[in-house]
Nucleic acid binder design. Sequence first.
DNA 1: CATCCGGCCGTAAACGTTTACGGATTGTCG
DNA 2: CGACAATCCGTAAACGTTTACGGCCGGATG
Lengths: 347, 347
Amino acid sequence: MTEGPTITTIAQRAGVSIASVSRVLNGLPTREDTVRRVMRAADELGYVPNSVARSLRNRRTDQIAFAMADIGNPVYVAMVREVQPLLKEAGYRLLIHSTDGDAEDELGVLRGLRERYVDGLIISPLRGVTEEHVEAIVAARAPVVVIGSLPEDMPDGALVDNVRTDSRTGVRLALDHLHAIGRRRIGFLNGPLGTVPGAARAAAYREALEALDLPYDEDLVEVGDFYRDSGARAARALLARAPGVDALMCANDLIALGALDVLREQGRDVPGDVAVVGMDDTDLASVTWPTLTSVSLGSAERGRAAAGLLLDRLQNGPREPRVVVVRPSLTIRGSTTLPEASPGGAR
Amino acid sequence: MTEGPTITTIAQRAGVSIASVSRVLNGLPTREDTVRRVMRAADELGYVPNSVARSLRNRRTDQIAFAMADIGNPVYVAMVREVQPLLKEAGYRLLIHSTDGDAEDELGVLRGLRERYVDGLIISPLRGVTEEHVEAIVAARAPVVVIGSLPEDMPDGALVDNVRTDSRTGVRLALDHLHAIGRRRIGFLNGPLGTVPGAARAAAYREALEALDLPYDEDLVEVGDFYRDSGARAARALLARAPGVDALMCANDLIALGALDVLREQGRDVPGDVAVVGMDDTDLASVTWPTLTSVSLGSAERGRAAAGLLLDRLQNGPREPRVVVVRPSLTIRGSTTLPEASPGGAR
DNA sequence: CATCCGGCCGTAAACGTTTACGGATTGTCG
DNA sequence: CGACAATCCGTAAACGTTTACGGCCGGATG
């Protein structure tokens, strides 16, 4: 693997100093004649600047990392999909860290910021921002955008912007809708209470019931994981315990898929017997049959917002931390209404 | 943003030279006492090595890029999902380039290799490897793995490994299956003939028909894009032209989704009236109703293979280019058999 | 003609590491 | 006690850029 030409090679061939070469290549004012000579030499040698050397000198890498629990999760895919073009547009490369939900890994990424291999980080911590996260962020002294909730008391040194959604309102929208179509025994299939979304959605469910003057019934609640098979297990358990349930609120779309599987298997009509609502409004929601009514937490919008905040901070320097709240909305599909004539739409 | 400690800071505090610090930090043999002093200083200062400086000196970045058409496509997500942990395990970071199917962009990534911001590249070019691709790869002098097909005559300097699948056999598997369940008028919904998969699958369809002694009928073929709504349009056109069709072979799962939409809309039973087969066997296939029989082209396996080849070359140095062919297989689901009792499974 | 000013350019330092090389110290052995 | 080997460490160069600084040369001006 022979070495490519460097600025020095060009300087020799053009008969000028490396400083001149650098100036020409960076478009700094230089005599016409010199410019031509350097350009010519660079062309002939097929010169390409070494980005590592440039990074070392300029103290910037033009790279940004995005850390998430699982790149297989459609929610994160939607975010990456929005983030990538914005970063590219601004001249940054994108690094992906899929932490597998491993808290140690997540912290590893945060601590890794100190190696300065990226200029900034977007992170979506599954289990919330702990004391250790905060420590690592402060020590990093590189801008970080957190997607998800933040502890109340971020210390001053922390360069943290925040994008969050309001799953409380999201759950509320879903339950209002279910109530409006006449459902009164609304079950809830949640994810782990140890996760931020899990905890928030649990609280939101109780609140929403209260607002609707519906009783809270433990038998109508089941906790599992945020996956399809876990959703199926939970649905089976809940249906066995409370056969009279007439709607299922699911803490994400995958759980809802599992619930749909079980309802079909048991011959219960959706939405006739049981209406189903998912959460996240992923691509999957328009693929199921019946299509899935789902609470959109604006994944794409959250991705865009996060990228925007980070780029703004990188380009315009220090400023007060900002918070962007993305409003949830409800996308009503077949699982809570009568079968539509024409389903689907593009993904 | 104050500057962090460098090797020099540590050297001062520990009262030794920077060479000693480096040696200690890299675990080279050093006197016990010096080791302690350096370690102590490093700890106290919270030293973290600067990865850019290290890269410059070591001429390696510990980064690998993966370039694909669209990170939103489940096929690529499946690949990334496999690639990421393998790279992490080997100590590499992962960069993602989603080129949007833009050929210029794709070449940009390839040319960018010469900036040496990554040690290697996995690329899946949508429209095949052109003359220009080859040029860029040779000039890059960095190892590249291409997922997809390669021109016959790669020049010697090109450090290219290759992972491909055999969509010909894949289509064949699907048509054999359809034939075996008694279908004789098998339609084909393809993607653009200008793409590598599109062209290959078109040829494979003709061959497979021939092998089965079925006539090739132009009315049974429709060409569109690899997306759901395009698939729907194509299905509608084909059904109008050839109402007697009893099976639809789709060039990918998204097209198949569109086809399922239309069949449902027209009240045709799947698989009773029309059987449907998709291709790629993405996560979506187990979500539809009926679940979708699909040709698996081993996305996950291709991802693993690509990562394996690249890592091998990076770790063990130059060697003959290798080719890995991943065998396709057929995953039979509800869209070609009677409705199952229990659908689904984990995603 | 002497002076000054401005435009270009070259020298050298800096970014933060790793490592070749040789000098110093210590210990061993004759 | 002297010579030599073995250890350990410090100096300095190198990786490929960018940029501060000062020198040189030309022309304009008094």
